[in-house]
Structures are given as structure tokens and as C-alpha cells.
Design a protein around this nucleic acid. Structure first.
Length: 423
DNA sequence: TCTGGGGTCCTAGGACCC
DNA sequence: TCTGGGGTCCTAGGACCC
């Protein structure tokens, strides 16, 4: 009989920073979202100071200062690299693994005759700590949803030492009762409010709730959650990541923009990045969508998107740039202060799958040359990092670019100050 | 005045996740 | 003054077909 384990990195972003800079260890530390907007990670010490997740930075800046909390902008290339190392170690010690997020993985593992998976889990924890300086929590149960709950319980129970096995626990119902509905995987704000209004407060009560009522309101999604709570396996471990269905690059501006030129400029930069991502995953898009909007917090709401279907799917930056620049006029409005914009590459397909158009047949020579050019640009950028080569428009002066004032300088992934060549 | 039924595909939007 | 980014899945409703 196989068991499912959920492994996750504790305070992952904060721990990554502490791992490469030991002077941050045992100190209250928080990591900010893009644009230094809000708190997205906290070290254990920062948690005990009651600093809340998602809190806007500007609102608590003074308080953080007074408390001596160290504040850092997020450094995703660092976290991505640490994540890769973490997953590689996990892979070596399990039968099946699904990498679920940057700091989480589901593992399928054979439960031995004596049912005891603690030795395995303890070994894994030690190994990760020795190799990466990161602490992980392991929750074990019969299926993915219960493994998630077990992981929560492992964090909550003091004597658990970061490991909890709900699969062999004696009084499972009393453990389920410990978990509030809003903390169940798949139950968000809307749903938990509805459940609470029905008097359903915790995982135990959701498990035993009337199934027809649940199905009627939440459809198959709710049904699956209930079945998994009961111990059935509805959600499989997905080893092979499904091909991406959409690639999106969007950012909030540090200052709102009002000029069409600025909007075009921002969208162009996002397009370059999105095309690069597609090529890295060997994908091409046949729908390109762009959008812009005012701030959620503004009284003057405006949001508009525009898209174009392509006759022939592509990942060629030049072609997509032209489309995006053209479309940007459609979403621009001079009367609104735009706070955010983005590009989406949709209807993605495998690059090698060829469906040539009969109408717009480009000469093979030309597309062949263009492909080589993209490949060359990507490989130079990969080798030297940091946009050694990019499009001229990306280097125009910007007044609105993302704030990252507090970026950790040390990085194990980035060579700074490479000369830039503009072509 | 009366005017079918059943199926598929697409899209927008909601809800959720980390 | 300042409130992240990038994803997925599901459903309802419209358009269209025979």
C-alpha cells in the first residue's frame, strides 16, 4: 500500500536568503513581493512578532523598522535555483514525485510492513538540511488532500519534529477537527464563508456534510474535496507536468502611466520575456492577449484587454512584438492612470508540431533564418545572463519600472555587470 | 396562432493555489 | 503617495449545427 507525502520548505524564501547569508539567521526577516508591494514570506522570528502575510509594506514600514526586522525584495532567481536543488534530492529518495510549486512536492512512497515511515522522513529532512541549509516539513497520509492536512498538523504540533503521519494516527477525526475550513486545500474565501454560514467550521464537519448540498453548490470540485477528506484517492500524483496552457508576463508599475508610448514600451518588454519563456519550453502560441488596468484600489476602474488569433502559431519575438504594439492602441485610454499591464501567450502547442498556413506561407528561408536568430539570442543570454542581447526598445529609459530597492546582492545565480550590447 | 431537441464548441468569468 | 505575479480548473451561457 502506498502512502502520499507532502514535503514543503519552511518559510522558503526567507530560508533561502538565510542559507546564503548566515548573518540573517535567527533574525526576524521578511521578503517583499514584486514592486516591494507586500509581505510574502517571513522567517520564524518575524512570525512570532505577529507580522501578517500579505500586509502592504508601506503600511507597516515604520513598525518593521522599530522592531528591527530585516526587509528584502524578492530574488526569484535565487529561490528558483534552490528549489531545483531541493527537488533533485527529493527525486533520489522517492518512487514518484510531483513538483507542485517552488517549495512543495507530493511524493508517493511504499508503506513498509510495520507501517512506519518516520525513519524515511527523518533521513530526508536531515539530508536536505545538510545539503541546502533548509528545513522541510513532511505530512504523510492516504491521499494528497490529507497529506496537505498532515503537513499543517506537523507544523502545529510541537513534538512532531516536522513530521506527521495522519495515515497511522489513532484518532483521525479529532485531528480533522483541528483544521478550520479555510485552511483546507481548495477551500478559499468565498467557499469558506458559505460553509461557515451553513455551520460547517472544520475539516471533520466538511467530511460529514450532506454530499448533495455540497455538490449542488460547489460542483465536482467540492465533491472531490469531500471524498479525499474521507480517504479516497481522487487526485492523482502527476509526475509529468502537463504542457503549459498559457504563459503570462505582467507587472504593476512603480508609478501609474498615462501615455500610450509608456504602455507600448512596457508591453514590449513583457513580450520579449514571454517569447523567451515560450522558446525555453519549446512552445508556440496561436493567440496573443494583452491587457491593462487601473489600480484595484482606485475609484476609477478601467480594465481592457485585446487579443489576436494568429494564422500560424509562433514564438518569434519580432512577429509577436509587432502584434502587441498594434493591439496596445486598443486597450489604451488617455483618461485613466494605468497601474498594471501584461501579455498572455495562449493556445500553446508544441513547437515541433507544424501546421503551416496556406494563406500566409512564409518562405522557409526567412523563417529558418529568424529561428536561428532567436536561438542565438537565447543561448547568448543563457550563457551570460542579464540580457546581453535584447531589443532596442527594452533599453529605453523607463520611469515606471518595478521597485526592488532591497534586493539581496549576493546571489548564486547571477553575474552582475556584464556589458550590454544593443542590436 | 402555431414555430424541436439535442449536441458541441467557444468564451468569459469565477474561484482557487502558491 | 505606495496594496505581487503566474498559473489551473470549472461552469454558465451563447452560437451554431443537424
Amino acid at each position: 500500500m502506498n502512502a502520499i507525502a507532502l514535503v514543503d520548505g519552511n518559510n522558503f524564501y526567507a530560508s533561502c536568503e538565510q542559507s546564503i547569508n548566515p548573518s540573517l539567521k535567527n533574525k526576524p526577516l521578511v521578503i517583499l513581493s514584486n514592486n516591494d508591494g507586500c509581505i510574502i514570506a517571513r522567517s520564524a522570528e518575524a512570525r512570532t512578532l505577529k507580522i501578517r502575510m500579505g500586509e502592504p509594506y508601506f503600511k507597516i514600514k515604520k513598525r518593521l523598522n522599530k522592531l528591527g526586522v530585516i526587509v528584502l525584495s524578492s530574488n526569484y532567481s535565487l529561490y528558483g535555483d534552490m528549489s531545483k536543488r531541493l527537488m533533485n534530492i527529493l527525486k533520489k529518495h522517492c518512487e514518484k514525485i510531483e513538483i507542485y510549486s517552488i517549495d512543495e512536492a507530493f511524493i508517493s512512497i511504499h508503506r513498509p510492513h510495520n507501517k512506519d515511515l518516520f525513519p524515511w522522513a527523518r533521513k530526508l529532512r536531515t539530508l536536505i538540511y545538510q545539503n541546502l541549509g533548509l528545513t522541510i516539513t513532511i505530512g504523510i497520509a492516504e491521499n494528497k488532500l490529507r497529506a496537505k492536512l498532515a503537513n499543517k498538523l506537523a507544523k502545529r504540533i510541537n513534538y512532531s519534529a516536522g513530521i506527521f503521519d495522519l495515515g497511522i494516527a489513532n484518532n483521525k477525526n479529532s485531528y480533522l477537527k483541528e483544521i478550520n475550513v479555510e485552511n483546507i486545500w481548495g477551500i478559499g474565501n468565498q467557499t469558506s464563508q458559505w460553509l461557515r454560514s451553513k455551520g460547517i467550521k472544520n475539516a471533520r464537519e466538511l467530511k460529514d456534510m450532506n454530499q448533495h448540498e455540497l455538490k449542488k453548490k460547489l460542483g465536482v470540485v467540492g465533491q472531490r474535496i469531500q471524498l479525499e477528506l474521507k480517504g479516497y484517492q481522487c487526485l492523482p500524483i502527476e509526475e509529468k507536468k502537463n504542457q503549459k496552457k498559457e504563459i503570462r508576463v505582467s507587472r504593476s508599475f512603480s508609478q501609474p502611466i498615462t501615455k500610450l508610448d509608456d504602455l507600448k514600451h512596457a508591453l514590449a518588454i513583457y513580450t520579449i520575456r514571454a517569447s523567451e519563456k515560450m522558446r525555453a519550453q519549446n512552445l508556440k502560441a496561436s493567440v496573443v492577449t494583452i491587457f491593462a488596468r487601473t489600480s484595484h484600489y482606485s475609484n476609477f476602474n478601467y480594465q481592457k484587454s485585446a487579443y489576436k488569433k494568429l494564422i500560424e502559431a509562433t514564438n518569434n519575438t519580432n512577429i509577436i512584438l509587432k502584434i502587441v504594439i498594434e493591439l496596445s492602441k486598443e486597450i489604451y485610454h488617455p483618461d485613466y492612470k494605468l497601474a498594471k499591464a501584461g501579455v498572455l501567450m495562449q493556445d500553446l502547442s508544441d513547437y515541433n508540431y507544424i501546421q503551416k498556413s496556406i494563406i500566409n506561407y512564409p518562405s522557409d528561408d526567412k523563417s529558418e533564418r529568424e529561428n536561428k536568430l532567436m536561438q542565438t539570442i537565447d543561448s547568448l543570454n543563457n550563457k551570460f545572463r542579464n540580457e546581453v542581447i535584447t531589443w532596442g526598445i527594452a533599453k529605453k529609459k523607463q520611469s515606471w519600472s518595478m521597485n526592488r530597492k532591497l534586493l539581496s546582492g549576493t546571489s548564486i545565480t547571477n553575474i552582475e555587470k556584464i556589458p550590454t550590447i544593443i542590436i
